[in-house]
Amino acid sequence: MPLAYSELRQRTKARDRSLRDKVMSLEEAAKLVQDGDHLAVGGCTASRTPFAMIWALVRAQKRGLTVSRSIMSTEGDIFYASGLSQHLITSWFSQGIVWGVSKVMRAYTESGRARFEEWSHMAMGLRYRAGAMGVPFLPMRSMLGSDVLGRVSGGSAGPADPAFAAAKTMECPFTGETLLLVPALNPDVAIIHVQRCDPYGNAQLDGLTFMDIDIAMAANKVILTTERVVSNEQIRRQPDQTKIGFFTVDAVVEVPFGCAPHECYGLYEPFYSHMDMYAQMTARDPEAGARDYLERFYHEPKTWADYLSRIGMAELIDAQRRGSAIHDD
């Protein structure tokens, strides 16, 4: 069920939405996430994945989260393997087409130990948008007739899981056509990585914005991680570039290379050698491989800089060189 409107308004009213300095550490920001929360993750596939925040949440041993994202890549594996979540809501989930189907995802979902709740990509977008608009649903014209709908509606086309949020069809009151209504998502917390923002949380995004603007508006708390914290003066010189407004933001954490080993537009591309290494580590025994990976990259490093050191300077420089090359073209 979508969150009741009165509850949504109450939660918003209860937040300190003033223009104030929200800069804090990853560890402090992790305290804003409670066990059992619905966590929405910004970016898409291997782009602007807020890995530093995910790293902090795994280290803080969060449990029972429902996690949603437009498309999930290796962070989805991390959510399952770390025990942070057994319920992911997304439209597509695997490391990436060049690496094939995620073996970690397969291990957890095929054994029934974890859920992968599948909606169409546009449905994910409109669910966040409905949340951002403060309405309980939006109508749309895809998913109809498919088993993707069957699984999330309890219809005849597939084995519906009653725990899934339901989509419903309706006859349009104006035209009589069949439309699909998808329920709003109002995440408890959104984690979004940006190229730069000010201490208040006014964020500028370069390149692809994915669903992040709607996610920030829909969520009841927003944690921004950012490559750089810039002055509020800089933001005010180009207010047309502000994509996420301070009023939605509850925490700002400065984390250079905060998407590693994924991409941050204009700054670094995915760390391909590391992504290949991850795929190899999880190829034969996916669960043991993922556990090893978590140990080496999530638990042993004590700081984000330690994590980056483990990935390696050569990888960092290579990703940065490829990433910044779009400015040379």
Binding site: S94, F116, S120, S142
Partner: peptide, 19 residues
Amino acid sequence: PAHPKIRLPGTGGGNDIAS
């Protein structure tokens, strides 16, 4: 689908495009 032999990555935008 209730007890899949292989769980594949899913629709992404495929369902929307094909619809």
